[in-house]
Design a protein around this nucleic acid. Structure first.
Lengths: 202, 202, 202, 202
DNA sequence: ACTTAAACGAGACGGTACGTCGCGTCTTTCG
DNA sequence: CGAAAGACGCGACGTACCGTCTCGTTTAAGT
C-alpha cells in the first residue's frame, strides 16, 4: 500500500510489522511535536526501526505521513455514503457539523494540517492525495447531491464538483487559514447560505 | 513596524537598510528555492547581513516572510476599493479573475503558499495576519458587498463575512489543496453559483 | 600604567574608575570561568563599562589581564628583598615554600596560568612581562644570590641568571606542566639538589 | 588509540581514514595559524570531514591535538634510549642540544606550546599526557641517570625524578616563558651548573 | 560659568566559530 | 539477505563573541 516507490526493492520480503510501526510512530509524532519538528530519525527511533528501512520504502516524510493517513482509513471499505433522509439541508448540516468536530479534535488537527501543507508544496503528493483520499470522498458527496438533484431539490444545470467546492471550501479555508472559529452554528449557516445563494429574492 | 518582537532590543538604533535587504532577500529566495529550503543563513548571506541581525528582530523565518509580505503592500495606503459599476456579478468576476491570475503567477505562488503554511501552523502569526493583511482585504470586499446589499441586490439578512467566505473560500481551497486548475472560467462559474445558490428554483 | 597603546587617545581624560573596574573584573572573571572562557564582553558587562572603553585602551584580553596583574603589585614599591639571615639554604627554602603556597592558592592559580599561556603565545606580551614583572623579581633574587656569592657560599664563576633558572625553573615547570604536586618537601629538596649539584662527591 | 571517549560510540565502526586525516590536519593547522586560531571547523574542512565526526570522538580541540602528537610518536616502539658513552656530561649536553634544536624548530614550536597550554588548563589532559608521553620520556632519562649513578658518577642518594626536573625544568621554563633565547651554549652551561651545583667548593 | 571635545555606556552591526540536530548514504553485524 | 544499528559528509540551526561603528550622555579643560 506504499504511495511512491523509489526503485522498488523486493517488496515481497517487506516486513509488515516495521511498516505499521513506522506509520503509527509517524502519526503519533506529528500530533506530539508538530509537522515542522517531525523527523525521519525521530520516526525511526520511536518505531524501533533503522532509518534505512524508512528510506527504502518512502521518498519523503510527507509520503510516510500520507501513508499513515491511508492506514487509518484502511478498514472502511468503499461502501460509505452520506445520510439521505430526503431532507438535503438537514443531512448536509449533520455532515458539516461532524466535519467541524473532526477538525476541532486535537488528535487530528495537527496531522491534517501537516498533510495539507505537504500537499500544498508537493504536486506529486497532491496527485496521489486526489486519487486516493480526496477523490473517493468527493464521489460520496457528489452521490448525495446527485440524489437531491434528481429529486428536484438542486438546480438542474448544477455542476456537482462546483457544488462540493462551494459547500466545503469555505469551511476548509476557514480552518486552514484560521480565519475564525469552527462552530456548529457556522456549519449550519454555511449550508443555508450556499444553498440559497447570496442574491436577494423578492 | 516589525511584527513580533522577541524582547524588544533598542529599536531606535535599528538599521533600516538591513531590514529592507533582509525582507527583499527572503521574498526572492522563497520564490527561487521554495519555502522548505529557505534558510535563515541563506537570507542573511543574500542580504549581506549577519545572522544575528535577523534573529535580533524576528523570531522565525515565517515571521520574516510575513514582514516581507507586509513590505510589499506598504505603499498602498488604505484607499483601495473593489470596482463598483453597479453590476455586482460582473464586478466580482473581474476581481476573482484577477485573483486567479495572481495565484497562477509563479512569482507569488510559492511565497503565498509558504505564508499559508506558516499561518496554518502558527496561531500567533495567524492573528497578526488577520489583523494586518486579511482583515483589511476583507473589509474592502465587504464594503462592495454592502453597497450591493443596500441596492437590493443581496439578501437583506445576509451575513457579509459569510458571503466573503462563500465567494472566496472555494477558490482559495482549490488553490491550496490543488484540487484542480484555477481558470477564469472557474472564477466566473464560482461567482454565479455562489450568487444563485445551489437550490432549484421553479 | 597601561601596557601597550594602540594609537594613544587623549590619555588625560581617561576614566580611572573604569580602568580599575575593568582590571578588577578581568582578574575576578579569569578566576571564575578560566582563561578560555574569559571574554571582553564578559569583562565589560561585569565592569559596567562599554566594550569600546576596553578596546580603546588595550589591544587584547591578554593585555588587560596583564595590566590586572600589574595593578595587584602596584603598592609594593621597589624596596622588596629576599630575606637574608646569612643562611642561604634556609632563606631560599623559606622563599620557595612561599612560592609553593602562592601557586597552590586557587585565587592565583588560574589567573597565573592564564598569564603564562598568553606569554607563551605572544612574544610582544612576553617582552613587556620580562620588563615589568619578571625582570624586577629576578633582580631581587639575584641580589640575594650575589650577597651569598660575595660571602663565598656560591661558586665564584656562577652565572646568577643561570642560578635563578636552576632554582626556580624546575618548580615553575612542575606547576605549569602538572608533572606532580607542589609541596613544601619538594621545595626543600629542590633547593638542596640545586645547591649541591647532582654529582657524586667522595 | 583515542585519548578520551565522550560516551564511547561504537568504536568498532570508526573510520581510520577520517581519524588520520583529522589528526594530520590538526597538526598542520596549528603550525600554520597558531593555537588560538585553530578551530574545529578549520580542522574538519582541511581533513574533508564532517564536524560531527570530530565531536563524536574527541571532547575538545586540545584532545585532538594531543592525539595528533601521539600519532607522530607512534612508530617509535618503546626501545628508545639516551646515548651512553660513559661520559655523562657529554651525553647530557648532546641530548640537551637536541632538545634545544627541536624547540627552536618552527614546525614544532607552535604545536608544542599549544599542547603545553592545554595541559596547563586541563588536569584530565595533563594526566593522560603524563601517562602516555611525559612518563615514558622521563623513564628513558632516568634510565641513563641510573646507569651513571651505579657507575658512581651521581650522588648515591639522588632522587632521579628530582634530577630530571633540575636538568630539564630550567630549559623548558625558559622556552615556555620566553625568558631568553635557547642556544647550545645555554644547554651546555645548564648541564654543567646542574651537575656541579651552585655551591662554592674549596 | 560656558563651551566643547573627549571619553563614556550602550548596543546594533557584519562576521566567525561554536556545539547540536537531522539529512540521506553507506557499511557492518546479526537473526 | 533484510533489517537494526549507527558512522559518515554535509548543511543549517540558534548562540556567543569578535572588533567596528554609531548613538546620546557625562565630564573635565580651557576658555
Amino acid at each position: 500500500m506504499t504511495t511512491r516507490r523509489q526503485n522498488t526493492p523486493n517488496a515481497a520480503r517487506r516486513s509488515d510489522a516495521s511498516r505499521r510501526a513506522i506509520l503509527t510512530a509517524a502519526f503519533e509524532l506529528v500530533g506530539e511535536v508538530g509537522y515542522a519538528k517531525l523527523s525521519i530519525e525521530g520516526i525511526a527511533a520511536r518505531a524501533g526501526v533503522g532509518k534505512q528501512t524508512i528510506y527504502r520504502w518512502w521518498p519523503s516524510k510527507g509520503a510516510v505521513l500520507f501513508d499513515a493517513f491511508l492506514m487509518l482509513g484502511e478498514g472502511e471499505g468503499g461502501e460509505a455514503a452520506l445520510p439521505d433522509t430526503g431532507d438535503l439541508e438537514a443531512d448536509l448540516k449533520l455532515v458539516m457539523r461532524a466535519t467541524v468536530d473532526e477538525l476541532n479534535d486535537p488528535r487530528f488537527d495537527e496531522p491534517m494540517r501537516a498533510l495539507s501543507t505537504e500537499i500544498s508544496h508537493d504536486p506529486d503528493l497532491a496527485a496521489v492525495y486526489r486519487e486516493r483520499l480526496d477523490g473517493p470522498m468527493r464521489e460520496i458527496k457528489k452521490r448525495r447531491l446527485e440524489a437531491a438533484q434528481r429529486a428536484g431539490q438542486l438546480a438542474e444545470d448544477l455542476d456537482l464538483d462546483m457544488a462540493v467546492d462551494v459547500l466545503w471550501g469555505p469551511l476548509l479555508n476557514r480552518w486552514l487559514q484560521r480565519t475564525g472559529p469552527l462552530t456548529p452554528e457556522y456549519a449550519d449557516k454555511l449550508i443555508e447560505t450556499a444553498l440559497n445563494g447570496l442574491r436577494h429574492r423578492r
